[in-house]
Amino acid sequence: MQIFGLDIGGSGIKGAPVDLDRGDLAQERFKVLTPHPATPDGVADGVKQVVEHYGWTGPVGLTFPGVVTDGSTIRTAANVDKSWIDTDARTLFSDRLGGHPVTVVNDADAAGVAEMHFGAGRGRKGTVILLTFGTGIGSALFVDGRLVPNTELGHLELHGHDAEKRASSKVKEDEELSWEHWAHRVRKYLAHVEMLFSPELFIIGGGVSRKSQKFLHYLEGIKAEIVPAQLQNNAGIVGAAMHAAESDS
């Protein structure tokens, strides 16, 4: 079974048809840059461009980098334009895609669901936290495999700032931090999250998961097991497609 998955991020909008039997992309993903400012209309145009690249006409699952309630209403917009707040995203995207059935879910929650089903969290019980390091820091919290949605742990305070303003991969690039220096910040963040939630497992997602050998060994002193996301930066696309398939069934 194939469903289209699309992952909206602060820097890029990427998507592809997903083979839900394998939990992997059915075709190579296509990506466009997120517009700046990332307004609803601008992002919707980018979404349309990605979907039309494949000539797709079926259901589409989308992620959004913020809190999504009732499967549609955007409540936060830390890394996109503030005009997103209170937007009915499902209606916006469905209209822009010519009436295709659309589902919308928090981006890190989608990535987490994919990793728990097909990747690094498969079969794991207890408390598992996936953290995506990108433009910001997204989070997905699971207790015995069940998702606690919209946790937004990237906005925990760390040394007087949102944690994502200190330890996202964008901060690493913007401040030209070495892997060791950046990992030192990530370790402090993980220690704070661990103090609050005592997870058995941290899954590190986002683009940095492809380069885990450059920083995981610096994350000393964390009691929880720390592993990279197996689906890497495609986890959000796969999770978005899974969400769409569940809504369509």
Rank of each mutant, 00 (worst) to 15 (best):
47 V>C: 12
136 G>W: 01
38 A>P: 04
225 E>L: 11
236 G>N: 04
114 A>L: 04
112 G>R: 07
185 R>H: 14
125 K>F: 03
8 I>N: 05
70 D>F: 02
101 P>D: 09
22 R>K: 14
232 Q>G: 02
68 V>S: 00
187 R>D: 00
129 I>H: 09
194 E>T: 12
115 E>W: 03
216 L>I: 14
7 D>C: 05
249 S>G: 14
188 K>V: 03
23 G>T: 03
94 S>K: 09
139 S>M: 08
88 D>C: 12
97 L>C: 05
111 A>F: 08
50 V>N: 10
35 P>F: 06
165 K>Y: 10
37 P>I: 06
17 P>I: 02
29 R>M: 02
104 V>D: 03
143 V>N: 10
20 L>E: 04
63 T>M: 06
146 R>G: 06
159 H>P: 00
144 D>E: 13
131 L>N: 01
64 F>S: 05
36 H>R: 12
103 T>R: 03
214 K>S: 11
114 A>W: 09
140 A>V: 05
154 G>K: 07
190 L>Y: 10
227 V>G: 07
54 Y>P: 00
186 V>W: 04
176 E>H: 13
222 I>C: 10
150 N>A: 08
64 F>G: 04
29 R>N: 01
2 Q>V: 13
188 K>G: 07
78 A>C: 05
151 T>N: 07
242 M>K: 00
60 V>P: 05
128 V>G: 07
118 F>C: 05
116 M>A: 13
226 I>C: 02
141 L>T: 11
224 A>G: 08
92 L>N: 10
109 D>M: 14
215 F>M: 11
146 R>A: 14
135 T>H: 03
221 G>A: 09
167 A>S: 13
15 G>N: 05
91 T>R: 15
238 V>A: 03
97 L>K: 06
155 H>M: 07
93 F>W: 09
163 A>Q: 01
112 G>W: 09
125 K>Y: 09
171 V>C: 01
175 E>S: 08
70 D>T: 01
29 R>H: 02
12 G>V: 09
82 K>C: 05
47 V>I: 14
123 G>F: 11
157 E>T: 15
204 I>Q: 01
15 G>L: 03
191 A>D: 12
118 F>T: 01
212 S>G: 08
156 L>N: 09
73 T>Q: 03
107 D>P: 07
182 W>G: 10
190 L>A: 04
74 I>R: 00
206 G>C: 07
149 P>L: 09
139 S>P: 01
36 H>D: 13
234 N>M: 00
175 E>G: 00
169 S>W: 04
18 V>H: 00
231 L>F: 04
65 P>Y: 04
